[in-house]
Design a protein around this nucleic acid. Structure first.
Length: 402
DNA sequence: CCTCCACAGGAAGCGCAGGAGT
DNA sequence: ACTCCTGCGCTTCCTGTGGAGG
């Protein structure tokens, strides 16, 4: 019989490379944001007039994931709110942050605001009621309300939302409402109504991806606070930032790599995180991401992907020539897909639509396709798996039993 | 050179679901 | 409550296209 209490005790006491694991979590927001001085300056320049009770421009922040958009705006707004409270010569500033993944309609966004501001649950009220409640709060308290809409591209009725919130200013004689839109979707702006575009994007800020050197510095900062002294080899930091820079310049990925590497080191009872741990962490992270992507894929797309992985695997085993490199023709993949779908008791889609699926998979970056040239009869789409066939197969095989 | 193969890719249309209008 | 409309996912049909093979 094991002593469970004792196991817990030793688990807590156990030597770990981590000093404070929270700091290495991808959700942690540091106080100091390196390499974002320009953006911070711009934001301050645009928001400062609000402290004097003036109406400010709406802001639009754009940049890929992990470029510090959310952290930057959160930190700047927190300081701004603090300052406004400290000084009597400043107007009252209230800032709110909403992730539009969870609140994805005009109604839900406004409702969330009045619930938070009044600290009362307004359930089941009409959309005009909640809107009036919001403007009333701003007017009565004479506040400058700054609303951050993170992942703004996920709002279903963006045009309506932005219009309603900016129009509120026309009705307000005291106080004001401003919007900070945050998005990582390049195409988002194109979808907007002309009026919305001009009012939302009064001031636009771009957050560029970090390069390898910048990522290294960011990681070093985190390592100092999050890990115990001398527990992370410099080369491990270098490798993690190189990996992340290569892929997207995404700080979150870089930090996640270190976190996982740390967990691996702890598991193996190592005292130091090495390059090998980072390399293993990368494999683990990759698999997690793939698993996530694959499981959200529609059933039919999973079959197509499974067909490609199976054929790629069998090709790798039979042909030894380096020229083959697991390149498949759309015809053979379609046949395999057809077979798999039949076995699953599902009706396969037509060849035409199958090609549509291929396009979708390419969009997700899971495969690469080209139109055939010489050496192949006629014109065919050549398909190459973008991810590791072995990993994908291990994910898909349990899901689709053959 | 011609024909055939193995597809590509556009156009039209179908059935269904969900939302808007009345 | 009802119809009407629209968008989505998909099929069917049709017209290329370009190398392989006779």
């Amino acid at each position: 019989m094991v002593d469970i209490k004792e196991m817990f005790r030793s688990e807590i006491k156990k030597n770990s490379v981590f000093k404070n694991k929270n700091i290495v979590s991808p959700h942690y927001i540091p106080d100091i944001l390196p390499f974002r001085d320009d953006q911070i300056k711009e934001i301050i320049l645009n928001l400062a007039p609000a402290l004097q009770g003036k109406k400010i421009n709406n802001l639009f922040l754009y940049g890929k994931t992990g470029t510090g958009k959310t952290s930057t705006i959160k930190v700047v707004l927190a300081k701004m709110e603090e300052l406004a409270k400290e000084r009597t010569d400043c107007k009252n500033i209230v800032t709110t942050y909403i992730n539009c993944r969870n609140h994805n309609t005009k109604y839900r966004i406004i409702l969330k605001h009045i619930n938070d501001l009044y600290k009362h649950d307004y359930v089941g009220y009409s959309s005009s009621f909640v809107y009036d409640k919001l403007t009333e709060y701003v007017r009565k308290n004479k506040i400058g309300l700054i609303i951050v809409l993170d992942e703004i591209d996920l709002i279903k009725d963006v045009d309506d939302t932005v219009y309603a919130l900016t129009r509120a200013n026309d009705e307000l004689t005291e106080g004001s409402i401003s919007i900070v839109g945050v998005s990582n979707n390049v195409m988002f702006k194109q979808k907007l109504d002309m009026r919305t575009k001009s009012s939302l994007c009064e001031k636009e800020l771009v957050f560029p991806p970090y390069n390898a050197n910048e990522l290294t510095k960011i990681l070093q900062d985190r390592v100092q606070e999050g890990f115990n002294e001398n527990c992370v080899e410099d080369s491990a930091i270098g490798l993690a930032s190189a990996y992340a820079a290569q892929e997207s310049g995404d700080a979150r990925t870089a930090i996640l790599l270190l976190l996982r590497a740390g967990e691996i080191a702890d598991e193996n009872k190592e005292t130091k995180i090495t390059e090998i741990d980072v390399r293993n962490a990368k494999k683990k992270v990759e698999k997690d991401i793939l698993l996530n992507m694959v499981s959200t894929l529609p059933e039919q797309l999973q079959y197509v992907l499974f067909a490609i992985t199976r054929l790629t695997k069998s090709k790798n085993q039979t042909t030894l020539g380096p020229n083959s490199e697991g390149i498949l023709h759309s015809g053979e993949v379609y046949n395999e897909y057809y077979r798999i779908a039949k076995i699953q008791g599902k009706s396969p889609v037509s060849l035409k639509w199958f090609k549509q699926y291929l396009e979708e998979l390419e969009l997700y970056g899971m495969i690469a396709t080209t139109i055939s040239g010489k050496g192949v009869r006629g014109t065919t789409t050549l398909i190459k798996l973008g991810a590791d066939a072995g990993i994908l197969n291990s994910i898909l095989e349990p899901k689709i039993s053959i």
